[in-house]
């Protein structure tokens, strides 16, 4: 982990970035000047919940409820936050 991520942190998609579902690719994408990234299923599920309202803890709880059979999902979710912060896809609101 490069970044310290707390359960109380609230994030939003970074300025000048856009997150959207792509019908033609059947995946979520993140778009920004000069680039784009197609997100895999898990990454898309996490970023879908990053809306500037929910805290990291709420995102974790929500996904644990949606995917009760995935072991240790919290670790994967925090790793995804870490990656997204490292790529500057997110901005911290609090």
């Amino acid at each position: 982990m490069q970044n310290t991520i707390q359960h109380t942190d609230i994030y939003a998609i970074a300025l000048h970035h856009r997150f959207q579902w792509e019908e033609a690719q059947q995946c979520y994408v993140i778009l920004f000047p000069e680039g784009m990234v197609k997100l895999n299923g898990g990454a898309g599920e996490v970023l879908k919940l990053v809306d500037g309202q929910r805290s990291v803890g709420e995102v974790v709880a929500s996904l644990q409820a949606t995917f009760p059979d995935v072991p240790d999902i919290e670790k994967d979710i925090l790793a995804m936050f870490d990656l997204a912060l490292g790529k500057a896809w997110l901005r911290k609101l609090n």
């Binding site: 792509e22 033609a24 690719q25 994408v29 778009l31 784009m36």
Partner: peptide, 8 residues
């Protein structure tokens, strides 16, 4: 082009 998948 959008129908073909164009994004950027």
């Amino acid at each position: 082009a959008r129908k073909l998948g164009a994004l950027q």
